[in-house]
């Protein structure tokens, strides 16, 4: 009972961070959902053995390992991973009941995701962990297995590149409107 309650609280608290991180690596909603489920199941199985004070780092480290493992496995099987756009093209949209509202609300998020996906994996991970999930430098260093100084450099580079990409995107949109 106590374990279930603890698990429920941890799920509520960390599932968004796990999902966002998985989505940023796998670039696909369905795969990110699968990854989140898998990591939460691993949490349930490992809960009695885990030290409770660095759970967030453990969860995100497990998420990263799982996602990179999935990417590696699919490359070996020669089955390419579908990006969100490709999935949307193949399947009917769940939110198609009210397409205009759904499109408006998700377009900006999609645009942000597309820009993020243009970054290399390590820069993307550092950016999402720091800016979106709110981890500290030390936690990010634990999750990614790199020195704190590298985390700081990667974050700086990710910010610079994203900023440039966002400006380029704005310029493209302006020219297409004209």
């Amino acid at each position: 009972m106590v374990r279930e309650l603890e698990f429920k609280i941890l799920c509520e608290r960390h599932s968004d961070a796990i999902y966002r991180f998985a989505h940023s690596i796998l670039a696909n909603q369905a795969d990110a959902e699968d990854a989140t489920q898998e990591v939460l199941l691993r949490l349930w199985n490992s809960l009695p053995k885990l030290y409770p004070f660095n759970l967030r780092a453990w969860l995100l480290q497990t998420t990263r390992h799982y996602c990179l493992d999935q990417i590696r496995r699919r490359k070996q099987l020669a089955a390419p991973m579908l990006l969100d756009d490709e999935v949307m093209a193949e399947q009917p949209d769940e939110q198609a009941v009210n397409p205009s509202v759904a499109a408006e609300s998700s377009s900006r998020l999609d645009q942000a995701r597309k820009l993020l996906l243009k970054l290399p994996e390590n820069l993307r991970s550092v950016f999402v962990l720091y800016e979106v999930n709110g981890l500290r430098y030390r936690e990010i260093a634990d999750v990614l297995g790199m020195p704190i100084n590298s985390v700081k450099v990667y974050l700086l580079r990710a910010r610079e590149r994203l900023s440039i990409l966002a400006k380029e995107e704005d310029l493209c949109q302006q020219t297409s409107r004209e």
């Binding site: 968004d16 999902y19 998020l109 999402v128 800016e131 979106v132 994203l162």
Partner: peptide, 12 residues
């Protein structure tokens, strides 16, 4: 703006 948009993403 990008960070704000990405933070809105939640686990279903």
């Amino acid at each position: 703006r990008i960070i704000r948009e990405l933070k809105q993403e939640t686990c279903p």
